[in-house]
Computed example of a mutant assay.
Amino acid sequence: MMNKTVLKTKELLDLFLDCERLTLPEMVERLRMPKTSVYRMAQSLVVLGFLQKRGDYYELGLAFLTFGALVAERLDIRRAALPVMKRLKEETNEAVNLVIRDGDEALYIEKVETSEPVRVYTKVGRRAPLYAGACPRVLLAFMDKADRERYLEQVELVKIAKHTVTDKEALRRLLEEDRDRGYTVSYSELENYSAAVAVPIFNHEGAAVAGLSVAGPEQRFSPDDVARIVPRLKQAAMDISRELGFRGKG
């Protein structure tokens, strides 16, 4: 059953699809609701940033810009990435994952599965901590330094698989190494006997907005395998970054 308060709030916000700004009496008239109820909803939305008040008028708030930009960016990343991911899968014959940061977690938003019978299963929608696994960790490695340190100060490193990094100083050293060489490698950090190599994807502002990884069983990720995968992976990430407007050298 739909929550009535949420439905009424949506009805109020829907008014601004046709009207750039509205007074409280105008909202009350259109919604046919008690004035006190409309006022409380409007004030709550102002506090949350979904509405802003200028004099007697209410209009949409800046919070919608943030959410709208995120939705557009995430859709653009998936659209730009999928053809490149399919090509990369054919080149490596391993699963290819696309991950973005969602708060203090990594969120898997796209995947191209390998045709190999022995594989690592990762579904779209999976969440993982930023410190564990090559693809989540590449987001952490290329995060703004102040944000990264703030995250490291407050996060609790929990052992998820046999090689999950649980020492913060060791993790800091690993992140610096990852950033210097431009890619991350993991073995049994999120799942035992799994391995992955990941690189960042950059947007038009030069910010790392996603991670692209090739993943599979550990036995197929020897140092020679990694050396073969990395150039292809970096090229794929650069192709996607170019589609997002990135003009740097990587």
Rank of each mutant, 00 (worst) to 15 (best):
M1A: 06
M1P: 03
N3P: 09
T5V: 14
V6D: 11
L7Q: 13
L12I: 02
L13T: 03
L15S: 10
L15G: 10
L15Q: 14
F16H: 04
L17W: 03
L17I: 05
R21V: 08
L22W: 03
P25E: 00
P25V: 01
P25I: 01
E26K: 01
M27F: 04
M27A: 04
E29R: 15
R30I: 10
P34S: 11
P34C: 07
K35V: 03
K35C: 05
R40H: 15
R40T: 13
R40A: 13
S44K: 14
S44C: 02
L45Y: 09
K53D: 01
R54L: 10
Y57A: 06
G61T: 04
L62E: 12
F64T: 00
T66F: 12
V71T: 14
A72R: 14
A72C: 09
R74W: 00
L75S: 09
D76H: 15
R78E: 15
A80S: 15
A80T: 12
L82H: 13
L82G: 07
L82Y: 14
V84T: 12
K86R: 15
R87Y: 01
R87D: 05
L88D: 04
E90M: 11
E90F: 03
N93T: 08
E94I: 04
A95H: 04
N97T: 10
N97I: 08
N97V: 09
R101C: 05
R101T: 06
D104Y: 14
E105A: 13
A106H: 06
A106M: 05
E116N: 15
P117Y: 14
V118N: 12
V120C: 07
Y121T: 15
T122K: 07
R127G: 10
A132R: 10
C135I: 07
R137W: 00
R137L: 01
L139Y: 09
L140E: 01
L140M: 06
M143Q: 12
D144Q: 05
A146M: 13
K159W: 02
T164C: 02
T166E: 07
K168Y: 05
R172A: 02
L174I: 09
E177K: 15
E177P: 05
R179D: 05
R179G: 06
G182H: 04
S186M: 05
L190E: 01
L190T: 01
Y193E: 14
Y193V: 08
V197P: 00
V197A: 03
V199E: 00
V199F: 01
P200G: 06
N203R: 12
N203Y: 11
H204A: 15
G206Q: 03
G206A: 03
G206W: 04
G206M: 02
A207Q: 13
V209Y: 04
G211I: 03
L212H: 05
S213D: 08
V214S: 07
P217T: 07
Q219L: 15
Q219S: 15
F221H: 11
F221R: 06
F221V: 09
S222Y: 08
P223A: 03
D225P: 05
D225I: 06
V226M: 02
V226F: 00
V226H: 00
R228E: 02
I229E: 01
V230Y: 07
V230D: 07
R232L: 15
A237Q: 01
A237C: 08
D239V: 09
D239M: 10
R242S: 11
E243C: 11
E243R: 13
G245H: 14
